[in-house]
Nucleic acid binder design. Structure first.
Length: 434
RNA sequence: GUGACUGUAGCGCAGUUGGUAGCGCACUGGAUUGUGAUUCCGGUGGUCGUGGGUUCGAGUCCCAUCAGUCACCCCA
């Protein structure tokens, strides 16, 4: 025990206990995104470090202290080694891929991706060093209709998953220019009152001044309340965009809360930003977040292209599904085949394959590893199977196989080999209807 | 990164002022020589997260370290 190697801090296994829930979740997301006309894209887990610096922002926590950085090895051609990083988020790589492949050159794209991201933060429940995001990105749509579509997708997803108690908050940061101007205004305001700022806020003055507005420190409340108001400094186009989005959401019947202090941490956001939050996961309550990033494509070397997207934290949503006790579709087998004696094993494994030929959807577990009837019955029960198929010396001699219900009261019956497929197919049909 | 709490069998937990470990579930054998889940009886399983220290003696006290959890920070 003592010297066993452990998984790396903040990086966890997803064990067979929870993979059915993950698969259920992934299936719903995949289908939903496909239905809305989104196409999957898959990017490498590793990119040049510079990509993240340029996209996410040099002075964000993510690039300053949370990236896993490695050095690319020299190849045989003698090319120079360079810095690369495990991706801390997906948007940067997606934009890079889109530009590189010419996907977002003067055209519309609806894309999604899923996979692990890496940030060297201090782990907590709902916050891991390797975590899974499903990201949805759109390119070439300038209007608020796509913002509304993205929000509608996420809202529908919660509904399909059966999740409750997730609330939508929205805000607008204005264009990049308006945001920069407002940011300067804030920096000036807070710099004048520096002696009133707490430690965190002093630091934020350089990293993310908008963040000061969202300070949890009650001592900061008065100072924050008197600060310049973001919405009074929105450019008129952004204000118009934002109010159109609100009326679209109203029209779709999606409730939301205006949160003027909602600020996304990544530099590339502009105009619409939104978050889905729950109070059931402690301080990691943001379960999905996104917004518009109209400047990013150009900033990474592409043509100016409007863009909007969001990402959800899969671990957090899985946690929420678990805390809300949302049932997972059953994965138990239909049948467990018990075989006692060499003849029965010889015949039984043959039958099992025939059954699988005839009934492709059949979920059948064959007993392996021997054991007497009692042991095998226990295994059958533990497997969760609805029925046990029972094959011993007696059955072989009579040309029959036993079928015993394990979850209902009924009696065990014996069937001739020849009618087995027909009978089982009827059983499966009945089971489907319940 | 800062502060706090926790770590005892596969899992969930108890262990008194320091005297070398126990319960439930799970697993397994039997009651039931070809039938599970229920019931009854028995059994396996722990260098007490790791490494040092104090002590005649440490699961218990001290230090360090690793991991988890909570809050902050940050974010999905």
């Amino acid at each position: 025990m003592a010297n066993n190697i452990q998984s790396i801090r903040g990086m966890h296994d997803i064990l067979p206990d929870s993979t059915p829930l993950w698969q259920h979740f992934e299936k719903i997301v995949r289908t939903l995104l496909g239905n809305y006309g989104y196409n999957e894209i898959r990017m490498p887990l590793v990119e040049q470090t510079d990509l993240f610096k340029r996209a996410v922002g040099e002075v964000t926590d993510i690039v300053e202290k949370e990236m896993y950085i490695l050095e690319n090895r020299k190849d045989s051609e003698g090319s120079e080694p360079f810095s690369m990083a495990l991706r801390p988020e997906g948007t940067a790589g997606c934009v890079r891929a889109g530009i590189q492949a010419g996907l977002i050159f003067n055209q519309q794209q609806r894309l999604w991706y899923a996979g692990p991201m890496f940030r060297a933060e201090r782990p907590q429940k709902g916050r891991y060093r390797q975590f899974t995001q499903i990201g949805v990105e759109t390119f070439g749509f300038a209007g608020p209709d796509i913002d509304a579509e993205l929000i509608a997708i996420s809202a529908r997803l919660w509904k399909q998953l059966g999740l409750r108690n997730i609330h939508l908050e929205i805000n607008s940061l204005g264009t990049l220019e308006a945001r920069q101007a407002y940011r300067q205004l804030l920096v000036d305001y807070f710099s004048d009152q520096q002696e009133l700022l707490d430690e965190d806020s002093k630091r934020r003055l350089h990293t993310n001044p908008l963040r000061i507005l969202d300070s949890k420190n009650p001592a900061m409340r008065e100072l924050v309340a008197a600060a310049p108001n973001l919405h009074e400094h929105l450019d008129t186009e952004s204000a118009e965009h934002f109010s159109q989005l609100q009326s679209l959401l109203d029209g779709m019947g999606i409730p939301y809360r205006l949160n003027p202090r909602l600020v996304r941490g990544l530099d590339y956001y502009s105009r619409t930003v939104f978050e889905w939050v729950t109070d059931e996961l402690g301080s990691q309550g943001t379960v999905c977040a996104g917004g518009r990033y109209d400047g990013l494509v150009e900033q990474l070397g592409g043509r100016p292209t409007p863009a909007c997207g969001f990402a959800m934290g899969v671990e957090r949503l899985i946690l929420l599904l678990e805390t809300q006790n949302i049932p997972t579709p059953a994965t138990a087998p239909d049948l467990f085949m018990i075989m006692a004696g060499d003849k029965a094993i010889q015949a039984g494994l043959g039958f099992a394959e025939q059954l699988r030929d005839n009934l492709p959807d059949l979920r059948l577990v064959s007993n392996c590893g021997g054991g007497n009837f009692k042991t095998q019955m226990k295994r059958a029960d533990k497997s969760g199977a609805a029925f046990a198929l029972i094959l011993g010396e007696n059955e072989i001699e009579r040309g029959e196989i036993g079928l015993k219900p394990l979850r209902t009261k009924g009696e065990q019956i014996n069937l001739p080999f020849s009618s087995l497929t027909a009978h089982l197919s009827q059983l499966l049909e009945n089971a489907k209807q319940h």
